[in-house]
Nucleic acid binder design. Structure first.
Lengths: 165, 165
DNA sequence: TCTCTGCGTGCATGAATATTCATTGTTTTG
DNA sequence: CAAAACAATGAATATTCATGCACGCAGAGA
């Protein structure tokens, strides 16, 4: 019935505290007024992609959520950091329209996105990073392709290549 | 006996392929010559901090990659999961240039984005998911509109027609 | 309105994982 | 060289989690 509200609450609970079993989570949900049983919870957990670790359940989105960044680091340091990051953590970069898509190893997208955000390329409008993917939006397609080429060069990628690994 | 070698091997196995149960992992270890039983493996897993996700066990450092349901899940399973998720958790889908924007209920974006990432649509470059919004970038605007339409249909959204009886 | 269909759910149960307890092999200590 | 102290393990078992099945409710269409 209130399946979405329920799942939202599950995420919230798991983000805030530590839950070691479904029964425990079940109790918390019931305390909040949700009426459900363990099998339903099990299905919710599967759908949400929650992982069970020795330290309790964790939400995958915890590490993949979009985050805007601002920094006060001196610009030359930022430049350096950006290049360094790009050299090591970029597996793929391609322009599509006025957007550039960059692929990194798992969990590496956020640092790169942060650095990009701190030192925006020419004509860049904004950046969002997921877990292993970054989008950079530009005003013009031309700026996008130029930036993509630039990234490919710095990262040492052949200008034509497929990602995923 | 060679507890360290064994645990290293466990990490290696989990990094390379996908393992869905301890029994499965147990069999792999035995094939490699290790002699142990499930309880021991359970303890190893706890010590190593491995997490069990709907997509199998993952190493702690790879926890962020919980996201990719990717790995080696059979394609038909992924397809099914994706369709299922789309049916229930998509409120809006529209193409804008070569990007498709998808809206979901709160907290539902990550699972859908994961599934999308695991079964990329034709000509898709990458996916980024926030809390209730997903961006999917395509090589061409055409692919984007096609995908948007497809999503709308599967999700049961009115594609534009005004119908009512 | 009355089907028909499909989704969400709980119940019962099977499968997977964690734990208790006893045993064995190994290191430390007298 | 015992013998105690400890660590690693397996067998049995408890606990936790997943799933097949059936039911009820809600929306689409006749």
């Amino acid at each position: 019935m209130n399946i979405h509200a329920r799942r939202e609450e599950i995420i919230r609970i798991v983000r805030e505290g530590t839950v070691h079993s479904q029964d425990e989570l079940l109790a918390l949900l019931r305390k909040k007024g949700f009426k459900l049983t363990q099998p339903t919870l099990s299905r919710d957990i599967r759908e949400l992609g929650l992982a069970k670790t020795p330290a309790g359940y964790v939400a995958p989105g915890d590490l993949a959520s979009v985050t805007p960044i601002t920094t006060f680091t001196p610009i030359e340091v930022r430049q350096e950091r950006l290049e360094h990051l790009m050299k090591g953590s970029i597996k793929f970069a391609e322009a599509a329209g006025n957007v550039v898509v960059i692929k990194t190893p798992p969990a590496a997208a956020q640092p790169v996105a942060s650095a990009l955000d701190a030192t925006p390329p020419e004509d860049a409008l904004g950046t969002v990073g997921g877990d292993d993917t970054i989008f950079v939006a530009f005003r013009h397609a031309g700026a996008a392709t130029a930036f993509a080429r630039n990234v490919q060069q710095i990262a040492g990628l052949s200008t034509r290549r497929s990602a995923r690994a």
